[in-house]
Computed example of a mutant assay.
Amino acid sequence: MHPYRSVLFVPGHKPAWAHKALASGADAIVLDLEDSVPDELKRESRATVRATLAELRARSPFAGLFVRPNALDTRLAGGDLEEVVCPELTGLFTPKIRDAADVLRWETLTDWFETRNGASGLEMIVPVETVDAIANCGEIAGASPRVGAMIGPTSRHADIARAVGFRWSPEGSESLYLRSRILLACRQYGLHALTALWEDLADLAGLRAFADYGLQLGFRGQIVIHPSHVPVVNEVFTPTDDEVDYHEKLVAAVEESTAAGHGAVRFQGQHVDLAHADKARDWLAHAHRVRNFARP
């Protein structure tokens, strides 16, 4: 999965909002058929989402376009996928997954409707919304090659807060263990690690601090719920010119030292060796993928 910096949610029954989301510069957009759509509008919203996907893809060949269908237990998921799986779709934001068996149920549905509707290569973004999902995050991460990303839970009012019972704080200490489990599962299986959302729409300084702490932990992108949050999150998760320059020079210094028969070298006042160069190369590979992600 592309290392999306910002993944912006939009209610599926409001196509104008989806176009604003694309204009915001979000790397990926999730058209929601679940929690943000009233029950009486869920079925008719499927056709709206299908039409919106075509419109958004016509405007941008590069943006990630995802749909969050309704949970499996609602018995609406099959109808959702029958309507919205299409060539324009990048993947699914699969809700309420509890274990590997749930992943395989989603995979089976995706296989069927992908073949039926002429789509291909659909990926899953898996939110962690239940205690079972936290306990089973490793098996979830490795259950299917379609799983491309998982989300470390942090939300103040969402399902995970109710399930765990934590009291939210801006610093996020109450969800650090939960996020860390998800992060390690992502690293183990090579998934894109996303941190969850910042719910205070007006507090951009708080958003920046929260996103930066997520980056510090090892997350590489964030879920957002308002277009005004996109520029902040994109900036935080975009490697800077100075950071790229530092890592490129570190690799060059170690390579020069190795060529001269040395295993370590002093670089900008620090002791660095082959392990440091390997880490820098990994970081640079990620940085170039992010910075080269073209958006019209």
Rank of each mutant, 00 (worst) to 15 (best):
residue 44 E to Q: 15
residue 53 L to N: 02
residue 58 A to P: 00
residue 59 R to M: 15
residue 53 L to A: 06
residue 52 T to N: 05
residue 28 A to W: 02
residue 56 L to M: 08
residue 27 D to E: 13
residue 33 L to E: 03
residue 40 E to D: 15
residue 27 D to Y: 07
residue 52 T to Y: 07
residue 60 S to E: 03
residue 46 R to S: 04
residue 47 A to R: 11
residue 48 T to A: 08
residue 27 D to T: 06
residue 39 D to T: 15
residue 31 L to I: 01
residue 41 L to C: 06
residue 46 R to C: 07
residue 60 S to C: 13
residue 44 E to Y: 09
residue 60 S to D: 09
residue 61 P to E: 10
residue 45 S to R: 09
residue 32 D to G: 09
residue 34 E to F: 09
residue 48 T to L: 14
residue 33 L to M: 12
residue 51 A to P: 01
residue 58 A to R: 10
residue 45 S to V: 10
residue 30 V to Y: 02
residue 58 A to F: 06
residue 44 E to H: 08
residue 56 L to H: 01
residue 59 R to K: 13
residue 41 L to W: 14
residue 36 S to W: 03
residue 43 R to D: 10
residue 32 D to Y: 03
residue 53 L to S: 03
residue 57 R to P: 08
residue 43 R to V: 13
residue 33 L to V: 05
residue 42 K to E: 08
residue 37 V to W: 06
residue 50 R to Q: 11
residue 37 V to E: 01
residue 37 V to T: 02
residue 39 D to N: 12
residue 59 R to N: 07
residue 33 L to Y: 04
residue 48 T to C: 10
residue 39 D to F: 15
residue 53 L to D: 02
residue 43 R to E: 08
residue 56 L to P: 00
residue 34 E to N: 04
residue 38 P to C: 12
residue 38 P to K: 11
residue 35 D to M: 13
residue 32 D to F: 05
residue 32 D to C: 10
residue 29 I to Y: 02
residue 42 K to M: 13
residue 35 D to I: 10
residue 32 D to I: 08
residue 34 E to W: 09
residue 59 R to H: 12
residue 29 I to F: 01
residue 29 I to H: 02
residue 28 A to Q: 01
residue 62 F to P: 02
residue 39 D to I: 15
residue 36 S to L: 05
residue 33 L to R: 00
residue 58 A to Q: 10
residue 33 L to A: 08
residue 60 S to Y: 05
residue 49 V to A: 02
residue 56 L to I: 14
residue 51 A to H: 11
residue 61 P to W: 00
residue 41 L to E: 13
residue 60 S to G: 12
residue 31 L to K: 01
residue 49 V to E: 01
residue 48 T to W: 04
residue 60 S to Q: 06
residue 58 A to M: 04
residue 50 R to V: 00
residue 55 E to M: 14
residue 34 E to V: 05
residue 47 A to F: 12
residue 36 S to M: 07
residue 35 D to R: 10
residue 41 L to Y: 14
residue 50 R to S: 09
residue 47 A to G: 10
residue 43 R to W: 03
residue 33 L to D: 02
residue 46 R to T: 01
residue 32 D to N: 12
residue 30 V to D: 00
residue 49 V to T: 07
residue 31 L to M: 08
residue 38 P to E: 11
residue 59 R to T: 06
residue 40 E to Q: 15
residue 28 A to L: 04
residue 40 E to K: 13
residue 55 E to N: 14
residue 57 R to K: 14
residue 42 K to S: 03
residue 33 L to P: 03
residue 39 D to P: 08
residue 36 S to N: 06
residue 58 A to H: 08
residue 41 L to N: 04
residue 58 A to T: 04
residue 55 E to K: 13
residue 48 T to P: 04
residue 40 E to G: 11
residue 33 L to C: 06
